[in-house]
Amino acid sequence: MSYLIKPKNYKPILDLQQTEMGIKRIKDFFQQNLSSELRLRRITAPLFVLQGMGINDDLNGVERAVTFPIKDMGDERAEIVHSLAKWKRLTLADYNIKEGFGIYTDMNAIRADEELGNLHSLYVDQWDWEMVMSPEKRNLDFLKKIVKRIYAAMVRTEYLVYEAFPAITPVLPCDITFIHSEELLQRYPNLSDKERENEIAKEYGAVFIIGIGGKLSNGEPHDGRAPDYDDWTTPSENGYQGLNGDLIVWNPVLEKALELSSMGIRVDKEVLMRQLKLVGQESRTELFFHKRLLNGELPQSIGGGIGQSRLCMFYLRKGHIGEIQAGIWPSGMRQEAEMAGMPLI
């Protein structure tokens, strides 16, 4: 069900024209910084892939992909991507990208099962990126190093927005805080996963929660993650599992945590088989993507996605993602948002 948060005394700082100018500045500047920080080249990405090849992102495993028949291919079905988590790794191999370099692209997706609200829409736009790494770097220190580089680009972009629109004061801390999802659970044992995120984001301003997908001591994962791209079962030096995570900041407008990015070190053969077994999906080993990985045809990589509209929403201090992107919303939500000072495009 859709749900609308109505920020108290909300009034947009920028009008529609200023907002569009801000969106362009943010997108141009951030992607250039991201490319420079991680040595990524821009490539073209698909809007849809063939069904049944194991290429599409399964997210939490319950979301339905939008599908359609292809007339000139005997009505073989294609599906709109959820994200490009696995497609990017195939592309690293096909483009013969060398270690220490990578790719990024504008990913556009439709998630028809999304629960619509201030932070969720039917349309998803993000920078999907993937970088080739050596197997020796499969550790938490390397993951943190990459997170810090991405966060540095985010901090610089916020200052660019401040220079263009002085009424928008920077709020991001200089450094990002790291915490494992199990440590977060132990810190707030009586709160839900989202409530724990709110508390830690409010305290530190920007956090990276490590270990998304594996079960915690309460028997539940902090959040869902598909078993065939991120590594969420490999133990680290402190005993906690997971070489992936979510980058979350405190949203001063909505007064709650805002996830801007999800990323992680990708599965190798051993981790893939272990995680498929954990979720009872060993049959996936017969799919195109999984066969190539198990045959050693894909490089070891690290990658993730960074929400474009969410990033712009945060920087421009908007109360609803519909103030950034044009979309379809329940008529009641559109009317309520208008009354709350959040006109939806």
Rank of each mutant, 00 (worst) to 15 (best):
M1W: 01
I5Q: 12
K6H: 06
K8L: 13
K8D: 13
P12Y: 01
L16Q: 09
Q17S: 08
M21A: 10
F30V: 10
Q31H: 13
Q31G: 11
N33G: 10
R41P: 02
R42N: 08
A45H: 15
F48C: 04
G52E: 14
M53V: 04
G54E: 01
D57I: 13
D58K: 06
L59W: 03
N60T: 06
V62S: 15
T67V: 15
P69W: 10
P69A: 10
G74P: 10
D75N: 15
V81T: 08
L84P: 00
K86A: 04
K88Q: 01
L90C: 03
T91I: 04
A93Q: 15
K98C: 12
K98P: 11
K98W: 11
E99H: 03
G100H: 09
F101N: 14
F101G: 14
Y104C: 13
T105N: 08
M107L: 09
A109L: 11
A112R: 15
E114G: 04
L119W: 07
Y123F: 10
D125R: 07
Q126T: 05
W127T: 11
E130F: 06
K137F: 08
K137N: 09
F142I: 05
K144R: 10
I146D: 05
R149P: 05
R149V: 01
I150T: 05
A152D: 15
A153T: 07
A153P: 00
T157V: 08
Y159R: 09
A164P: 12
A164H: 08
A164Q: 14
F165K: 08
A167F: 06
L172S: 09
P173A: 04
C174H: 12
E183F: 02
R187P: 00
P189N: 05
N190M: 12
L191H: 06
E197Q: 07
N198C: 10
E199D: 07
A201V: 03
K202D: 02
Y204S: 02
V207D: 05
G211W: 07
G213C: 00
L216E: 01
L216P: 00
S217A: 01
G219D: 12
P221E: 03
G224H: 07
R225C: 02
P227W: 02
Y229R: 02
E237W: 07
N238S: 10
G242L: 06
L243Q: 15
V253Y: 13
E255R: 12
K256A: 14
L258W: 05
S261K: 11
S261C: 05
S262L: 01
G264K: 08
G264V: 14
D268E: 11
K269H: 08
R274H: 09
G280Y: 07
Q281C: 03
L287D: 06
K291G: 11
K291R: 03
N295G: 05
G296N: 09
G296C: 08
P299V: 15
G303D: 14
G307I: 02
G307Y: 01
Q308M: 12
R310C: 04
L316I: 03
K318A: 01
G319M: 07
I321T: 05
Q325I: 15
A326Q: 08
A326C: 09
M333F: 09
M333I: 06
R334H: 14
R334C: 12
M339K: 11
